[in-house]
Every structure is written in C-alpha cells, then in structure tokens.
Design a protein around this nucleic acid. Structure first.
Lengths: 212, 212, 212, 212
DNA sequence: AATGAATGAGCTTTCATTCAT
DNA sequence: GATGAATGAAAGCTCATTCAT
C-alpha cells in the first residue's frame, strides 16, 4: 500500500524526516497527557522545539499530526514484531514467542497505543482507511504464524478459527495496554502472558484433538 | 457506591430526571455522529429540545453531559445483562447464556459503547474513577457466573484464571462493537459467539480435566 | 429580486436590524480609512460597540459584513434618488433634477461609494451578481427618465443612445466621488453639475434636432 | 517628475530591471485573478520564476510590488497613447483618433487597469501621490489635444470646459474597462466609441456655436 | 546573487458559559 | 424555570519578512 502523503512546503526530504520525528515525539507526549483535542498546535510546535510557523511548514492541518503519529506508532510496532518473528516459524514455540513479543511491545508502547485507539476516529474519512489497513496487516501477522503451524502439522484449525484466534491475540495484547489500570492490579505482565497463552493453547490443542 | 452527583440549579427532582433524559438521548445521538469534542452544547440543547440556557440549569459544564451519558450507558448495559442472568446460575449453560446475552447487548449498543470508550478519557479526574468502577462491576458479573460454576463443581479454576477469563469475555464482547468494521466481514454475530464460546469452553474444560 | 439572506443566529428580527446597522456604520468608517482587507473583524466589532463574539452572532463570515455594507449603501442611494424623482417626470427639467440629485447624493455618500467600488470584487461569486444587479437597476432609473422624455416628445433618441447616456450620467456621478481628489481642485460641485449637464443637454438636443 | 525609487540590495541595474520585469509580469497575472491582498509574496516569486528570497533582494515590501505594477501599467498606457498622438495634432480628426486609441488601449489593458483602480488605495501615503500624478498627466494629454484644437480655431471652449471634457473622456475610457460586464452586453467596442464620440462632438460643437 | 527554512504577529472564527429578562 | 443574546478566551492557520548558507 502506497504511503498516504502529507504535504510539506519544505523540499529537503531529509529535513522533513527530522522535523516530523521531532513533531511526532512531542505530539505523542502531549496526546498521552491530554488527548488530541485538548492539545493545541502551538503546544505541539513548542514540544517539538520549533515555532508554530515552522510546524505548518511540515504539515497542512492539525489532523496531519494525528495521522503522522498513528502511522509512526504502527510502523514501530510492526518493526518490533518482525524483528523477532523471522526465525523458526511453524512451531508452537514460535507462536508463543510471537505472542510474548507482541504483549511486550504493547506493554512498552502502552501509552502510544492508547493514544491511537482513542483518537483514531478523529481522523478524516481520508486517512482512516489507511490506518485501519495497517491494523489488518498486523492481525495478518498472527494469521501467518497460525497458518505456518497448520502447514507444519502442529495445529489443525479451520480458516475461520484462524481468523478469530488472530483477532483474539491481537485484542488481548491491546487489552494489556488499554486496561492496564485494571489488569496491573491483578497480574504482572509475565503472569498475564502465561495465563493467556496457557488458556489459548489448551483451547487450540483441544480443537486439534477433536478434529483428529 | 454512591452516585456521583451532578449539580443542578433546578430543585424539582422529577423534572431534573426528565430533562436529563432528554439531554442524554440527544447527546448520545450527537456523540455517535461526531464525538464529544466536535459536538457543541448548543447542539445538545437543541437535540434535547430546549434552549442553551435551560441546558445549563441542569448541568454545570459540558463534561457533566459526558459523565451523564457514560453513566446512563453503563446502567443500560448492566440492566440488560441482569435481566437475563437471574435464573439457573451455576451451570455451564447459564455461563454460555450470559456470554451470548452480553455479546448481543454489545451488538445492539455498539455505537453507545464506542462513544464511551473513545471519550472516557475526556472525563475529569473527578468523574473517571467512578466510571471505571462501573466497568469493574461489569467484569465482576462474569466472575460471579464463573465462581457459581466452580461452587457448583462444573469448573475448576484458580482465582487468577477466573479473573483473566472474565476480562477476556468482557473484552471479546467489546471487541465485537469496537472492531466490527473488521469482524463483520468475517463472521455473523451468531458465528462469532459460537466460535468464541467454543474456543473458551475447550480451554476451560481442559483446565478442569488437567486439574483432576 | 429577493434579498440575499445573511444568516444570523439571533432570532429577534428587530434586534438583528439594530445590531447590523451598528455594524455597518462602524464598518463603513473603517473601510473608508483602511479598506476591507486591512480592517479586522475585531475592529469592526469594537467600532460597532460590541464584542467579537456578538459580531459573529449576526453574520457568518467577514465577507458578510462587506455584503451588508454594499447592500446598505445601494439602498440608501436608491432611496435618496426615488424621493426626488416621483414628480413631474417626462420633462427635461425633471431629467436635470434627477441628475442634480444624483450628483448630490454621490457627493454626500462619496466615501461610502468609494468603499463599495474598491471592495466589490472581494465579494464572493455568490454575492457579487446580486450587487451588480442593484447597479443595473440604478442605471435603469436614468433610462426611465430618458424614456419618459422620449414618450413625452421632449427627446428623440435611439435605444442604444438611451443606454449609453444613462451609463454616462451614472459614471459621471461616481466620478465626482471617485476622482474628487482631482476634481475638487478644479470645480465646485455646482460648477461640475452645471458643466456636465450643459454638455450633455447640448449633445442630446443636437441629436433631437438632427433626427427631426 | 523623478521616478520614485524602490530600494534593491542588488547593485547591477540591468539585472534589477530584468528581475523586476519578471516580477511585474507574474504579479499582474496574479493580481488580475485574486487581487493584491489575496496574492502572497510566495506566489509572486513563483510566478516570476525565482525564490522568495530572491524576490526580497529586489524589493523591500510587498507594497513595492504593487507600486511597481501600477507604475508599469501607467507607463504602458502612456507609451501606447503617445505612439499614436504625435502626428497631425490640432484637428478634430486627431482628437477623435486620440479618443479611439485610448478606448482601444483601455480595452486591451482592461484587467490591468481594473487591477490598478481597485488596488491603488492599498498604496502607502508615500507612493500614492506619485501614482495620482501619473493619472493627471494622462488626463493632461487630452487637455493638450483639446487645446491644440482651440489654438487651431477648430474649437472654442473655456478652460474649465476643457478640463471637464478631458476628464469625461478619460473616465469614459476607463468605464469601458471597468464596467465591461454591463457594457459588453449592449455594445461592441466600435459602437461604444462611435456613440460616445458622436455624443461628445455634438456637445462640443454646440458649445462652439453658442460661443460664437 | 540566490535560496528557502524559520519565524511569530496577527488573522478569522468558534463555543462554553453567564445573566438579565 | 426558561430563554437566548452577549461575552471573550482561545483555537487553527497564514504569510510577510529575515537571514544563515
């Protein structure tokens, strides 16, 4: 999918990248504290370390900042996940590793993800589908892991089962970030991962047996 | 937990209730369409059928409206759930019924729930804990169902397992409302319920067996 | 032609009229001094005697103020003209009276007219035709006076001649307002009127004679 | 009258001339479309074919561009007129030729002239008198033509009559450019010239006769 | 001489809230 | 108790101008 371009009046691509990184970093901090709507463009500029005029040299509307933030978060999450998932695919071990990694990423990027989920709907009709597509891609990564296990004979699941389990994993990961105010009181991250995977694997293996 | 009071300059309690109901009804419709921040108090007043001056006779700040809306949504959801859960508790059937009902409620109240989750963070430090408490109560309802089954000898789960399963059910329900843009393409509500409960029950029963 | 409506959030028509009159009065003064573009909405509000918020209760955009100003100027000019033109039409006297009155009005409303001519093109595609129509109506008033004289046998002009003479009169009137920086040094208003009408009447009568 | 200087930090006079010509050409196009105020300096620079930094090497303020544009338009008009008026002065023919030429120039340069008249007031107190002087010079050209005819015995007019007729001719010329939205529907340029000169000459000759 | 990134004052417009009627 | 006109702080965004390269 082609990157959705955000217009900039500055030509130097390198500089655009630098400034936008500053902008995103500042914006995420602010959005975490007060949300997108309560954050002003002036505050974003200040947090990024430049003037309001300069901010608008690199974006066209405030919403562009939100899009850039969402886009950057997805890219980071995806990158972090792909790092770990390249080796030994097709085993239940690799599946568990994938889940563990994902939950860790969600823990680390908790507030970024929180920001994204609470502000996504403020994106315009233009930017929204692009962001949703990215999410589907991420769910797709878990589908891949599951399908590899099926090909490898380690699991036996219907297509729909694969789909729903991938969604469940994804949502459980987000849940750790989203609902940490409740979950942190009950479990450590390690406990959470252990309990969720145990529950999942028992559910999965049971399928496997019952389909034999 | 004592209801968090929202100040009103009108004394007649009955009238306050009537006006607030009008207000909430109008506000929910608007929040669904454009979110809390993009909805103006004037619009809320108009949708409620009275003037902006009157609106402010029944609340003190715009945020009060949000609180009232969230509160009312929770009450509705809870009420709908309790309707169905009063009978034949302690059986796996009743648990499945509880889940099924919850998922249906989430389907029906999808946009209300969406509104709530995306706007909760706009609540003041004052109102937030009250709303979160309500959510814990709802998760607690699933814990209850599970514990009844354990007392009844139908399940054998640790306390932590109960907690996490209750959360999972709750989040899977929300997920149907939240991520319906993705899920609707893959499953009908009935399929979704069937797949999720099947997966859950296999996971649970396995526990049961392995603990024997 | 139906009045082009300018939206107001205030319902009380009487009040709208009062506030808009204040607004127009203030705006004309400012536009005279600095033109439309260099005048800020805050200045307009202040000159009108109310707050910026109140200003925007009675208009929707800054351009609305310009439209209101133009509209009001035309109405005043037209009203002033019609006052005098009701009696003894069809004589050369009445024509001369009409011209004299028009030139006097242009003298009195000099700066208003100047404002209008320099800012009209800032009107949106929406408002412009409405204003131009008003101008054509005013030229039409001189065509009427001329045609009445023709019907009365006092003049003998072709249709095209009537058109161009009406335009000439109109433009000569404006010219007194427009170019007063140059004309005032050369003539008094009375002299100007005398010279222009003398020149015109000789031109007209000559036609009359040559067509006989 | 000494040219009003516009400061430039570039020393090379030749280059200054080149760059300013590019600038004026671009600016006129833009001013025609959107007026002086709605045109940005960036757009002017771009239309001129160089950067915003370079633009400011050749002017000091945006207003300088307007001045340069007005100045250039006047020069063009004047030049075009003088071309034609050098020969056979002092006859009514030459007067008619002068008028005809002027009206043609006004037709050709219609939008430039329109720009000038609508934006002149945006000139600073400093530049304005200089531009107005130019206009007086142009009116003066018609005074000259008339006076030549008087010297030649072809006309017999008072000084004031000469002045007002020169103004009338000038304004009628502008009117063709200014009010072309109305006039074009009624007359071709040739018709317009014919009607106006016929009317004028009859008025003038009548004077002539009546003064005998 | 040419460039264009940076600046920030200043613009138009919105909207939660108040208060006289 | 109901109304809605008035308020003004504050928002998003623009653009003439500067200056280091």
């Amino acid at each position: 999918m082609k990157k959705r371009e955000v217009q900039s009046s500055v030509k130097d691509e390198k500089l655009v990248q630098i400034r936008r990184d500053q902008m995103i970093k500042g914006a995420v901090t602010l959005f975490k504290q007060k949300g997108f709507h309560r954050t002003t463009t002036r505050e974003i500029a200040k947090a990024a370390g430049f003037s309001i005029g300069t901010l608008y040299e690199y974006i066209r509307t405030k919403e562009d900042v939100l899009y850039l933030v969402c886009d950057s978060i997805y890219d980071h999450v995806k990158e972090r996940l792909q790092e770990d998932l390249e080796h030994k695919q097709g085993t239940l071990e690799s599946l568990k590793l994938g889940i563990t990694n994902f939950f860790h990423v969600m823990d680390e990027m908790q507030s970024e993800v929180l920001v994204m989920y609470q502000e996504v709907k403020s994106l315009s009709k233009d930017a929204l589908p692009y962001v949703l597509k990215k999410e589907i891609e991420m769910v797709g990564m878990f589908e891949n892991l599951l399908n590899k296990c099926i090909e490898n004979g380690e699991l036996d699941l219907t297509e729909k089962q694969v789909k729903i389990i991938a969604h469940d994993i994804f949502v459980q990961g987000q849940m750790w970030g989203f609902r940490r105010w409740a979950l942190r009181k009950l479990f450590t991250l390690e406990e959470y991962i252990e309990l969720q995977t145990e529950l999942l694997f028992k559910g999965i293996k049971k399928y496997e047996m019952s389909n034999k």
